[in-house]
Simulated assay, not measured.
Amino acid sequence: MDRVGDVVRLTVAVLITRWSGIPQQREEAIGSWWFWRHDALPQPLFVPGAQCLTAWNPGLPLDHPRTHFQPYTSPSR
């Protein structure tokens, strides 16, 4: 979560470990989605996106402001 001027932004990252099929864009507000390998990311990245990626993999060579990360795990089913 951060603030840019009068706008408070909340960015939530989700790590998907199992899926089937081909990823598809379902959100109309976004112009288009692009999929990149984590070792070939385009630059510059949206800062909250870079922060989420480095919370997942601290070894990624991405320059961004420090972030706070709150891990969450779903309860066992």
Rank of each mutant, 00 (worst) to 15 (best):
D39S: 11
R77A: 07
G49F: 12
G59E: 00
A50M: 12
E27L: 07
D63Y: 03
W36R: 02
A13F: 14
Q25T: 04
R3W: 07
W56P: 00
L45C: 02
W56H: 11
A55P: 13
V4F: 01
W56R: 03
A13S: 12
P75N: 06
P44A: 00
W36V: 01
R26V: 08
R3C: 06
T11I: 14
P42L: 04
V8I: 09
T17P: 04
L62I: 01
F46L: 08
V14C: 09
A55Y: 13
P75E: 07
A40M: 04
V14I: 10
G31I: 01
D2L: 07
T17E: 12
G59H: 02
Q25K: 09
F35G: 03
D63P: 04
I30Y: 10
R77M: 10
P61H: 00
H68P: 09
Q43Y: 02
W56V: 02
R9D: 05
H38M: 09
Q70R: 15
P23C: 01
V12Q: 11
A29F: 15
L10N: 09
Q43M: 06
P58T: 07
R3D: 03
V7P: 14
D39R: 05
W19E: 04
D6F: 05
Q70N: 13
T17R: 11
T17C: 07
W36E: 07
A29T: 11
